[in-house]
Design a binder for these strands. Sequence first.
RNA 1: GCGGGGGUGCCCGAGCCAGGUCAAAGGGGUCAGGCUUAGGCCCUGAUGGCGUAGGCCUGCGUGGGUUCAAAUCCCACCCCCCGCACCA
Length: 971
Amino acid sequence: MSYLVNIARKWSRVWEERGVYEANPREGVPKYFLTAAFMYPNGPAHVGHARTYLIPDVLARFLRGLGYNVLFPMAFHYTGTPILALAEGLATGDSQYVSSVAEVFQVDAAELSKLKDPVSVARFFHEISKNAMRLYGLSIDWRREFTTIDPEFKAFIRWQFKKLLDLGYLTRGSHPVGWCPRHNMPVGMHDTKGDVEPEIEEVYLIKFVGLDGLGYVVATLRPETVLGVTNIWVNPSIKYCVARVETSRGVDTWVLSCEAAKKLSFQRNVEVLREVSGEDLIGREVVNPVTGRVVRVIEASFVDPRFGTGVVMSVPAHAPYDYVALRDYVLSKRGGSWEGLEPIPLIKVEGYGDVPARDVVEKLGIRSQDEHTLLDSATKEVYRVELESGVMRSDVASLVVKEVVEGARSFVEGEISGVPVKEAREKIKNFLRSRGFGDSIYEIMNAPVYCRCGTEIVVKIVKDQWFINYGNPEWKKLALEALSKMRLVPEEARTQFVHTINWLREKACTRSRGLGTELPWAPGWIIESLSDSTIYMAFYTVIHKIREYKIPPEKLTYEFWDYVMLGLGDPSKVGVDQGILEELRKEFLYWYPLDSRHSGKDLIPNHLTFFIFNHVAIFPESLWPKQIVANGWVLVQGEKMAKSKGNILPLHWLVSTYSPDVVRLAIASGAEVESDLNLDVDVLDSTRAKLKAIHDLVTSIFRESDLSQVVDLPERWLLSRFARNVLSAYDDLSGVRVRAACLKIFYNVHQDILKYLEMVEKPSKVLRDLVIMWLKVMHPVTPFITEELWHEIGMSGLLATEELPSRDELRKMIDESVELSYLFLERFVDDLRNLTKVVRGNEAVVYVSPEADYKHLVESIRILREGGRMSDVIRYLVASGFADRKQAPKIAKTLIDLIMSLPPELLEAIVKVGSVNEYEILLRFRKFVEEETGIKIKEVYRSSDESAPDYGGKKRAALPFRPSIMLMSSS
RNA sequence: GCGGGGGUGCCCGAGCCAGGUCAAAGGGGUCAGGCUUAGGCCCUGAUGGCGUAGGCCUGCGUGGGUUCAAAUCCCACCCCCCGCACCA
């Protein structure tokens, strides 16, 4: 095992020293430019990266072998906030934390504990990962490596964003985010306890004006039920605040729970004037803004001060909570009298009575307002059926007793009565909002969600947020156009891309903290990571030259990039030597457009789509990317990798434990790109065994001194099979079917060589030539062991720079007639074996058809291909004299069955080759057949041989490609 | 809820887009045999049911349909996985 790791160390160093993978423009040579998503170093590169990076590497090596000038670069993405959290954790010096991180990542705890700031954390994992990638054999041009906090890169990103701004694709506004009041920063899923995504939703507010002059603002998801309000709920045991609250119409005075007031202060200005107890509010009267009805404030224990405003409107006909609370109240305080509080039916729903809430409550047998689980499911049911199939009753206008706002009655009459709930909801919302009685706040629907620090998360409205407006219809059109011209692997991803492009709206593109590039015109705002990584592939084309010519970052101006990337402006006025500038421009144009972009499938709905959008925004059509390859996950022992599970397989550990070639072959042959790959230890072990077997086979072939010079049937067969497998593997690789290619190159070829060795007494010299070709075609997947073998068998030069056998060269090696003969033999063995299962016997007499009869098979194939039926075949057989009228149908049936059972390629081969000399083949491979089946071949006769005995009447049953066999027991 | 992907033999997993090459590739497991001092390595064969002549029957989530012919096409249903953003 250490052998494989050692040769990897040796050859990766040699390749690097000789600059084998440093790609420079070469005029007249076709280029291929591929990139994989650079990694975010908040941990070491792991087996997931290993997969995403291996696919382009195999393609890169393959294409180099076919004569392409291939560029495969890599960089590191420092932008973002997760590294901050990690650095924060490490900086506390908590040794338990440090050692747990060290363990999942398989890194040195002492080293780790020295890291105090985000940048050194990033550098630490960057170095580990980079070294792992080098040992892993990725054929990367490392001269072009960079990080996203390099000044040159920042200059490039500033240019990109200025471009987006000029194009009108950037907008500004405010928007709600999950927010930790203690950290004073936005929190996403990865900063919360248990990785919970805070679900932020807009909740509607309706203001009931109290007769005391205060605004009693209720929060609701169902504004249409405002028509059926019988009372207002407050919780008597909690504190309420009277506060001056900012609204779109100026400042208003509201009553709301003090907790709500505090939360709301993150969304708008709130000034608490005084506190009142819930108790004090009981019995006050408020006016329904739509119906004008005056209702009372009543106590209810179910009211949650943390949700909405802590003030709730009561709609007993359609809200189970309200119905039950009201029932409690009526029974305990009013001796069962509902007078004045009767549920007011608003919505008709099939299958329910006038008061659906009551129906459901009774169905579930709910007894009190404290049975939250039951009430929640009741609420869900009523909400769902009313939304889906509910219609506002036609008499709702009569509920308007007094017009608080002008036109309320005619509004309800004309727009609400008789319409579906969904529609009524929108109309009432708009009506109330336009009259100053409607508003909305944001609420965390899955509250409580806690920050990692333990503080409960609130919703904050971030102001002056910058967005990239992916909702722009013109832009979408361009993106769709680019997509339609792009090749996708897998093709199934296309619909997902189309939907993503259509669905995307404004994307917040800045953050208030983290590593990255500042928005040039808005200091303090950092461009977030999904936004600064959309066109950086272009940056690879020139960064090494910028460094080589020592162009200082301050000279990388807007004009500089405009010229290099777009050829705009006057190169003499850029402030950089014009010759150099032209050289950069030329190199960019040499490599661009990008030929293939690789990443995990998880990036389809974000990065890969943004990648398309930004390319079409900034670059002309001729420079749009040509292909995207999105690969599936890597599962470890059937499970998804996760830090929390501790089952992350870091690349540096993998390659030093199992060796790069083993890991590469296991990943490459484990699954096709689109599907998830399950990696477990057994697979790695058996892959290692496979490589060892190949290694030993190759060395033994070259150790063997006694080789024949013949190029006979077995040799021709071997060469032909090899060529076929390799050609087919080439096609696979061109279609990014790496697994299929691997199976052919590593498994089929290997097996054929073993078969060949069985066939011959003494291997031919031809085998050596074939092995040399074999090493070449294996090299893209397992570069190290093949390079080592290359030298071991005495070849000169580096295998890494060798050309692969060309398609033409391979095609010439194909020999259909030999392959057909061999196939015939295989089928015969199968047939014979099959027969031994049903008939006892240990020796066989075989009748083969004369070669001349093949013309009947060929003709029958032709007839069937041209749409002929059995009758046509019969007619032909009789006409040709092959069969008489009596036997023809039976023969035709067998013939057709035979033809139908043969694969089209084989039929093609039969037609092409014309015939098989069955007699000769069987005699020649008699021993082989006997060994394979355990049946002695007593005699082989031509069925046309008059003098041959006819055992069991089998003589006449022979058909081309299907000898007739008489099985018997020797006495 | 919206969107995407998928349900295949004991297990994993191809094949379905271009219907007959499909009892259904390839692994794994299991069984038998070989190699071997021994085998955890490797090699060969078997692995839905039936069959003393190379064949028949049943079968690819469920139920219908189209067709001479369906794992493959159409319709309905059931079930599983993954995304829904400001986060890499």
